[in-house]
Amino acid sequence: MSVLVVVECDNGEVKKSSLEVASYGSQVAQMLGTTATAVAVGEATEANLASLGEQGISKVLYDNDSRLKDFVNGAYTKLIAAAAQQESAQIIVLANSNIGTAVGSRLSVRLQASLATNVVELPKTDGGQFVVKRGAFSGKAFSDVVLSGERKIIAVKKNSMEPLHNAGQTATVEQFSAQLADADFADAPKQVIMQEQAGGILLPEADKVVSGGRGMKGPENWNLIEDLAKALGAATACSKPVSDVDWRPHHEHVGQTGITVSPNLYIACGISGAIQHLAGVNSSKVIVVINKDPEAPFFKAADYGIVGDVFDVLPKLTQAVKELN
């Protein structure tokens, strides 16, 4: 019996969400008195994989088949199933990402496992049951779920675990092959198009986000958002109407019908705080709201607020961050 964690890599680096997954997996392994092995997908370097030792991982399996560089649902599923078999893994931990949930849901059927997605805490195992807490109702609630199958698959919500810092620990990296056939690549991409990232920070992975709404008045004012984001090392986001009218690209739109983010810091500038917007951001640890209307509903969901004009307040904040650094 062991724990298998699925680590996503991009441009050689292990994604931050996957460091959290590795940390989660090794802590579960410790609770159960066993070890955690990782299987890595995407483009990785040996040195970065070895550094997963810091997350309490003893061994990393990696198949450097070049066809696995980009996401292929069929092939990734087969690779991870083979790794789970080799390691006699009873528990598989992956990120609650597009890749993690796509693979996890297929694996749960193939391995006859209980699956819980959107998990926010380490499991409770007292009383012989295995219980995880997961987010539900688009950030408006949580549920405790018993995973009753012998095998369990857990998709961990981003930013709900802290990575560990076992400095100096390294994992051994082993070449691993799952004997993939052409049929496993039925959904292989013909082309991969990556977005341009402002400041190189990916919104779903960001731990700080500066977000703008209709109160920003027009796309020409977004330099105010970008300047603060840059000073803070944050990603930029927006409300739905802003992307609907193409002030900002669709992939920056957060909320019920956009992406869900749960950063440590979310700064909302000129956003009213409609319930559908809150659904995508309300699990952020600290929410700051800047709005000229003291009655804006967002203040009810905020930790800090400034009643004021974004055009006046944002430059002051950027300046203050620069002074602090």
Partner: peptide
Amino acid sequence: RTQVTEYALPPKKQGVKLIPAESAGDLI
């Protein structure tokens, strides 16, 4: 293969701490 045992609402926020716009830098 899964059973929900309990639902819970998120903990209530403490309430917002307001910073005057004139001293916006204090927020940082």
